[in-house]
Design a protein around this nucleic acid. Structure first.
Length: 641
DNA sequence: TAGAAATGTCATGGG
DNA sequence: GTCCCATGACATTTC
């Protein structure tokens, strides 16, 4: 229940912030005192505020018959606010369930609600989780019963006609409500002593506020329609109550068009259901980003409900804060929001985190090796979804937590304003691609409501399977985000690891001198650069070694081929020589067969030999004399050499 | 689960 | 003397 209230109050806060984003600022003192109390008070203020008073004070109208602790005006306005943000589909029954449960939790429901309203709401709740087809019957029931809260934005994405009808109905109801309020106010004036109900008194004060509030909402709506969502400029004066022309340099598409569900908010509030919702986060994120790039943001808004809208606004606020482009906002608000985020993160211990940092062995800051077992068990299962940055409500990786909260402990400020561009670009590149890992990954499927979730052993099996999946994802994330990258992020080092390693030494040194960096940061940066350089050098060395081995192997192959070729050539030469010898021998025998001595007898080839003279004459000489003459010629040739 | 391959890191020497 | 790079050696991770 505490979580439920937390999300509701967070939702109101973020709705207020959203209004600020589009240039409308609420006057908390006049409109939403409890919100102001939450913002300006302690982080646990939401648990101390009577829940029903939040709505009654804000709305100040007659109480809704089905949900007495919820004033009719507030309910309508709440839905109207949702509507003003794009017709988001808040389920009436879910809203009733929240409020009823909140009131019961604070002991007010027993006094203010009757059994019939509870049974009505319970019956609605029983009907709600069923298929879409029941929405039509539900609407029919609403029309028949004349339900005051007839703004049931059943989130059928293509049901535009229903939304148009709701618009008409809304305007009619608003006019009717205003008339009732005026009449009540008149009654209050005329019957001042009449013990009117609390709601009547509130309604006496509300017309002015409600009109003004409605005006603000209408301007918000117009602003949403008119402004270019991607060209929002910063606001100069944050204290101006209303500045419709104000714009913020915010990627509004990314900031608000998150297709998230009320169911997701319920899951976030219930840790036992959270893991189940994270199953399809990555796929949903991817599909969301793809669809988001090609769809009209306003159309996207129309598919988001209020509570689904808020978490992403919160994420956007985080990003915008990181980019330092929200200086135009009221800093107190964001400071308080950050404090609330800190407070919301259960179990977070900045001191412990810093100790973990200091306990690291490598340069005193290595993080991957310093995970405590208890934290690793958590981070293993959650770091993928909660991401490196530690989303709200999740106790993610140690490094991710420290990344958020060590900002004050380290430097990283810029000396010159013009460096903001470079830093901003770097943060843009980082934070534009990281939300897939860093932020809460919402379950957009609407496939399972909390009542439909399996319980007991089935759920345990489901969770174990999810845990294994998340562990795999965590390992993948570890691959993507190396230790150095995590360290750099944890220390808010304004350079990426690639930049630190890849930039030339002169640029590197000049950057170190230009930025305000602590000794720890500089040490880590140099450590990252040294090891990164050495890593690259080792890779190059191994590559060269491998190339050398491959070249040597290639040379060996070439030499072996050359050797084979030479052997083949030698064989051919030997064959040619043997053939020539054979021919010479044949010629010899042919010549000697025709030769005759002075007696007419054949010349014996074994005793005589033919000798070619230099002048072309051919002489027949005895072999002994031929051999002797041949030896002397060889000796002469050797001597000449 | 052992072992090979790949990779990271450190120490050291040379330019 | 310092810095950078290449490389051997070792440890760790991955397959």
């Amino acid at each position: 229940m505490k979580d439920l209230k937390k999300y509701l109050t967070e939702g109101l806060l973020q709705f207020t912030i959203l209004l600020s984003l589009v240039g409308v600022r609420l006057d908390f003192d006049s409109y939403l005192p409890p919100i102001r109390e939450i913002i300006l008070g302690s982080s646990s203020a939401y648990s101390q505020i009577p829940f029903h008073s939040l709505w009654d004070t804000a709305g100040g109208a007659s109480l809704h018959p089905k949900c007495p602790h919820l004033s009719e005006g507030v309910a309508r306005r709440l839905l109207h606010e949702v509507r003003a943000l794009g017709g988001a589909p808040v389920r009436r029954t879910e809203l009733h369930a929240w409020l009823l449960q909140a009131a019961q939790d604070q002991g007010t429901a027993a006094q203010s609600s009757n059994s019939s309203s509870s049974s009505d709401i319970s019956s609605e709740l029983q009907e709600e989780p069923t298929a879409e087809g029941r929405n039509s019957s539900k609407e029919q029931q609403d029309v028949e019963t004349g339900d005051v809260l007839a703004y049931s934005y059943l989130h059928e994405q293509n049901d535009t006609s229903s939304l148009e009808q709701d618009d008409k109905k809304l305007s009619q109801e608003t006019r009717r409500e205003d008339n009732v309020r005026r009449s009540n106010a008149d009654c209050h004036k005329s019957q001042n002593s009449n013990p009117c109900t609390e709601s009547s008194r509130n309604s006496a004060n509300s017309p002015h506020l409600l009109d003004e509030f409605t005006h603000l909402l209408a301007e918000t709506e117009n602003t949403l329609e008119e402004i270019s969502l991607e060209d929002i400029q910063p606001v100069g004066n944050s204290n101006s109550g209303l500045n419709p022309s104000s714009h913020f340099h915010v990627n509004f598409t990314q900031a608000v068009s998150q297709d998230v569900s009320l169911h997701e908010a319920m899951l976030r509030s219930d840790p036992t259901l959270r893991r189940n919702s994270e199953t399809s986060n990555f796929q949903r994120e991817e599909s969301f980003q793809q669809s988001n790039s090609s769809r009209n943001p306003e159309a996207f808004l129309s598919e988001s409900n209020l509570t689904g809208l808020f978490p992403y606004v919160e994420n956007s606020i985080r990003n915008l804060t990181n980019q330092d482009i929200l200086s135009g906002f009221d800093e107190n608000i964001f400071d308080e929001i950050n404090l609330m985020s800190l407070a919301i993160e259960e179990g977070f211990d900045p001191i412990g985190v810093s100790q973990l940092f200091e306990a690291d062995s490598d340069s005193g800051l290595s993080l991957s090796s310093s995970r405590s077992p208890t934290l690793s068990s958590t981070s293993d299962s959650l770091s993928t979804s909660a991401g490196e940055e530690g989303a709200v409500g999740y106790s993610g990786d140690v490094e991710s937590i420290s990344y958020d909260h060590l900002e004050g402990a380290v430097g990283g400020c810029l000396l010159e304003h013009n460096k903001c561009c470079r830093l901003e670009c770097r943060f843009d590149s980082d934070f534009c691609e990281e939300p897939q890992f860093e932020h809460v990954h919402h379950n957009h499927t609407y496939s399972l409501l909390p009542q439909q979730l399996k319980s007991g052993t089935e759920q345990c099996h489901l969770w174990s399977a999810e845990a294994s999946k998340l562990n795999r994802c965590d390992r993948d994330a570890d691959k993507i985000f190396s230790r150095d990258e995590r360290r750099a992020k944890a220390l808010r080092i304004p350079f990426s690891v690639e930049e630190i390693v890849g930039m030339p030494v002169d640029v590197f040194n000049s950057l170190l001198s230009k930025y305000y960096l602590t000794d720890v940061q500089i040490s880590v940066i140099r450590d990252i650069r040294r090891r990164g350089k050495n890593k690259v050098a080792a890779q190059n060395c191994r590559k060269r070694k491998l190339d050398a081995i491959l070249n040597l192997e290639n040379d060996v192959c070439q030499l072996q081929a050359q050797k084979a070729s030479l052997l083949k050539e030698k064989a051919q030469c030997n064959k040619s020589v043997s053939q020539m010898k054979q021919k010479l021998s044949d010629l010899y025998r042919s010549v000697f067969s025709q030769l005759r001595d002075e007696h007419g007898r054949p010349v014996n080839p074994s005793r005589y030999a033919l000798r070619c003279h230099s002048d072309g004459r051919i002489l027949i000489v005895p072999r002994g004399a031929f051999k002797l003459e041949h030896k002397t010629e060889q000796q002469k040739g050797k001597k000449q050499k």
